[in-house]
């Protein structure tokens, strides 16, 4: 249930994100999810891709600083209170979330969650009958 997310440190320079996505495209690596945390003079690109280990190797070879971070991907219904229900469970269990990003379409919403205690996140959500996506499925979305 643990999903390996790529985190890439990018300087605030025009064209840098373009280079990043070109390298992935040239190597036939698909991006399933992407979000950027932007600070004043740099950004951190967080993305979920097919074949994450290969992507890390190729990006490193091309001079990017890239780490793998463990995240979970939660499925909630696309309706009012869908996210609240899941987050309340985490809050009730005193689990702190570092960041998350989400997108909804049609009847479902997908939420990527990062926490320092990611295994605990997964256990708590599973025990409360919430649906988590398997890594193999996420990489291929």
């Amino acid at each position: 249930m643990i999903i390996k997310q790529l985190s890439v440190f990018l300087e605030d320079k025009s064209g840098r994100l373009n280079e990043l996505t070109k390298i992935l495209a040239d190597n036939d690596i698909n991006i399933t999810a992407l979000s950027i945390a932007d600070a004043v003079d740099y950004g951190i690109v967080r993305m979920i891709v097919g074949r994450p280990e290969l992507a890390v190797r190729i990006l490193k070879e091309n001079g990017f600083s890239v780490n793998l971070t463990e995240v979970a991907c939660l499925v909630v219904p696309n309706q009012p209170g869908g996210l609240y229900h899941a987050l309340k469970i985490l809050a009730d269990n005193q689990i702190n979330i570092d960041y998350l990003y989400a997108f909804a379409i049609e009847t479902t919403a997908l939420v990527v969650i990062r926490s320092a205690s990611i295994s605990e996140v997964i256990n708590v959500l599973k025990n409360n009958q919430l649906e988590l996506l398997l890594a193999s499925r996420v990489y291929q979305l």
Binding site: S7, F9, A39, Y42, I44, S65, N67, T69, Y99
Partner: peptide, 15 residues
């Protein structure tokens, strides 16, 4: 330069 091994992907840590 950030160190290749020891950087965090969280903005608050980098800040």
């Amino acid at each position: 330069e950030i160190d290749e091994q020891f950087w965090s992907d969280e903005v608050k840590q980098l800040e």
